[in-house]
């Protein structure tokens, strides 16, 4: 259990590292997605039980994993995907407006 959780933590801080240290807007968006993926992994880890099967009860099973976090994960994925779409769209727009995707140069608004 802890091993997966360490992976989650690593993914999470990897995402943050990407956001903080990569200049490219697309990479920053990828960083956000990595963070999101880590949270979804956390949800899946939460529902996981040793030897359990997927919650589709077409016949009798002994042990079934928790279906609720999976449903939550689905919702989280959809929300994340929509936000990512908007972000990518903005990246395109920004590239047209500023001629660059370097985040350290996209800063006309300040002060």
């Amino acid at each position: 259990m802890l091993a997966v959780q360490i992976v989650i933590a690593i993914l999470f801080i990897l995402g943050i590292y990407t956001i903080l240290n990569r200049k490219n807007v697309i990479k920053i968006i990828m960083g956000i997605n990595i963070m999101e993926a880590s949270l979804i992994l956390f949800l899946i880890q939460l529902s996981y039980k040793d030897g359990g099967t997927a919650p589709i009860l077409d016949k009798e099973y002994e042990l079934i994993v928790d279906p609720l976090p999976q449903a939550l994960a689905l919702t989280a994925i959809v929300i994340g995907a929509s936000t990512t779409a908007v972000m990518l769209f903005l990246a395109i727009k920004l590239y047209k407006e500023y001629g660059t995707l370097d985040i350290s140069e996209i800063r006309r608004l300040r002060g």
């Binding site: 956001i19 999101e36 949270l39 936000t83 908007v86 903005l90 920004l94 500023y98 996209i106 608004l109």
Partner: peptide
Amino acid sequence: NFEGVLKYIVVGSIGGM
């Protein structure tokens, strides 16, 4: 207003997470 919104959306996503 794309620059502002990009900042908004990135910060907002991190907050949401």
